[in-house]
């Protein structure tokens, strides 16, 4: 990796410094939580999917969300960048502050919000375009088209996909395997440099090697970004996260604390049962 870094082009270095300076802006507010969730609840029609949630998600840390299937993990994640707006039957109550601004205020444009809060979905959703165009998509949409090649390559490298696709960037993304598509979607989400990255089971279709690479990426990302990751893999949550939120059936956030506390000394008996596999 170090030899590759030495051969970085000037352009890439420029991008890096640009990003570094953006980051130092962010560092000045580093100790506030970047996301403050207050009494956030969600209904699908009359069906309640999320009990009022309160949580402070720290900046530049990895926060893991665990819990049994159907407990509202994806629902919670989609609240953060207002992807739930697009589901007709979904109604969201409460507040969610991003850098102190309630994202559900009327004057917040969800499109602008999503440029700062990116998302990787539970099911890989590549576009029927070439691999290159998939990764470049967000950059083009957001008008960040200078040094496109460099940015695309960098995103693919970080998503541990570059070596597998470098000589077929023009081929359709739909011809990739499921695991490759998942990493492609990661590359697509990180290419435009969002400030917060929401990842919904990003490693569910990956083999152990690719999983390890994606975990490296997440640790790497957490130096500069805030990562919120949903996972069904307890070991993974324990390995990579700083904070862990445990949702249990009924859409209730039962415990939210430092990962070590959750895994070694949880306050809630149900959480302990879930983690040790006696539940769910």
């Amino acid at each position: 990796m170090s030899s590759q870094e030495q051969t970085q082009s000037n352009a890439e270095l420029e991008i890096e410094t640009e990003i570094q300076s953006e980051r130092s802006d962010r560092e000045t507010r580093a100790d506030e939580p970047v996301l403050e969730v207050r009494e956030l609840d969600v209904h699908y029609g009359d069906e309640r999917a999320l009990q009022p949630v309160n949580a402070d998600i720290p900046e530049k840390k990895v926060t893991a969300i665990i819990g049994p299937s159907g407990c509202g993990k994806s629902t919670f994640l989609r609240c953060v960048n207002r992807m739930n707006d697009q589901i007709d039957v979904c109604s969201v109550g409460g507040e969610l502050y991003f850098h102190g601004k309630n994202v559900y205020d009327d004057d917040v444009d969800p499109v602008a919000l999503r440029r700062k809060i990116g998302q990787v979905f539970q099911r890989p959703n590549p576009f029927p375009k070439s691999i290159y165009d998939n990764v470049a998509y967000g950059l083009r949409i957001q008008g960040k088209t200078d040094d496109l090649d460099t940015r695309v390559e960098r995103a693919l490298r970080r998503a541990a996909l570059w070596s597998e696709v470098e000589d077929r960037l023009d081929e359709s993304a739909l011809d990739l395997s499921g695991g490759q598509q998942q990493r492609l979607c990661i590359a697509r989400a990180i290419a435009p440099d969002p400030e917060v990255l929401l990842m919904d089971e990003p490693a569910s279709a990956l083999d152990p090697i690719a999983t390890a690479k994606v975990e490296d990426l997440i640790e790497d990302l957490a130096e500069n970004y805030t990562v919120v990751i949903v996972t069904h893999n307890m070991q993974q949550a324990a390995r990579i996260s700083d904070k862990t939120a445990v949702f249990l059936t009924g859409g209730e956030l039962v415990e939210f604390d430092d990962t070590t506390t959750i895994f070694e000394n949880p306050a809630n008996q149900a959480v302990e049962d879930y983690i040790t596999g006696k539940f769910g």
């Binding site: 960048n81 992807m83 697009q86 499109v111 602008a112 999503r114 440029r115 990116g118 998302q119 979905f121 959703n125 590549p126 576009f127 029927p128 998509y137 967000g138 949409i141 957001q142 979607c185 697509r188 989400a189 435009p192």
Partner: peptide, 10 residues
Amino acid sequence: MRDGSSATGA
């Protein structure tokens, strides 16, 4: 696909 697109800020 629509979700993937709007989540990148389209």
